[in-house]
Structure formats: C-alpha cells, structure tokens
Computed example of a mutant assay.
Amino acid sequence: MSRPLYQVKAEFFKNLGHPARIRVLELLSEREHSVAEMLPEVGIEAANLSQQLAVLRRAGLVTTRKEGSNVFYSLTSPHVAELLAVARRILTGVITGQMELLEDLRTPAAAAPRGRARKQS
C-alpha cells in the first residue's frame, strides 16, 4: 500500500529540517565538496557532519564519489539548488512584508482619520 503524496512530501521537508543540512546543500549547490572542505563552512564536529550527510544520502539528495582517501559529495539533482533559491525568495518576500508592517507600526498616530481617536492595541 503506497503512502499519500503529502506524507512523502512531509518526510522530504523533514529531511531538510536541520540548519547543518541546509548549509551542506547550499555549499553543494555551488560545486562538489569533500567532507574536509565542508567542515569549516558548516561549523559542526566531523561526527555530526557525517550523520547529517548520511541523512541527506538516505533521502536521495546527495551522492558520493571517492577519489583516493577523499570522499566528495554532490547534489543528485540541480532541482535541490533551485528549491533552496525559491525558499530564499519566499523568505525575502515574507521578511520584506514584515519590515513594511513594522514601518507602518512606527508611523505616528497622526495618520488616523480626523475627528476620531485612533484605536490603540
């Protein structure tokens, strides 16, 4: 019996739900990286990075290539990089909207219609 698509999507996004995993995917959006190259950029212990990479591998988001004693990681699909770019655009829009709301809140009460007191929250 197959699972509903919304459950599969939820699991997919759950796999993205860790800051270190997002940072790894951002790095791999640029080019392939070895673990040694990612360590200082991700800012976590090697064992923790290994665990996060394993999650991304199991999710089918990254693949590996071995060269000598080095293991290089890359994205399995350019769509992963596109997803991160779309998320950035969404967040930019959300934050821009919040900044506009904050600016509206900072506007003096003089902007209230004449003859009525402005309701305070």
Rank of each mutant, 00 (worst) to 15 (best):
R116I: 10
T64E: 08
V62L: 04
T63H: 14
A36Y: 09
A110Q: 13
A87V: 03
R3D: 11
T63S: 15
Y6S: 05
Q120C: 10
E103S: 14
E67H: 13
A20N: 03
R57M: 09
V8L: 02
S29P: 10
K14P: 02
M99W: 02
F13D: 05
M1Y: 05
Q7C: 10
A87M: 08
P19V: 00
T107G: 01
V8Y: 00
Q52Y: 00
K9Y: 07
S2K: 08
V86R: 15
K119N: 11
G93F: 03
R65G: 07
R114E: 08
F13M: 14
A112T: 15
M1E: 06
V62C: 04
T64I: 04
S77D: 06
N70V: 10
A81M: 13
I95P: 02
V80Y: 05
V94M: 08
E37H: 01
A20E: 02
R116P: 05
T107K: 07
M38V: 05
A10Q: 09
G115T: 15
L39I: 03
I90R: 13
T64L: 03
R3F: 11
R58L: 10
E41N: 02
A54V: 00
T92E: 09
L56W: 00
V94K: 09
E67G: 07
R116C: 08
G68T: 06
F72I: 01
T63Q: 14
R23E: 09
V35T: 12
E30R: 13
I44A: 02
S74I: 03
A110W: 09
V55W: 12
L27M: 07
V24T: 07
R31K: 15
E37M: 02
A20K: 01
P113Q: 04
A47E: 06
S74R: 13
L75I: 07
L101C: 11
A59M: 00
R114I: 05
K119E: 13
A36V: 13
E82I: 06
L49G: 00
G93E: 06
L83Y: 05
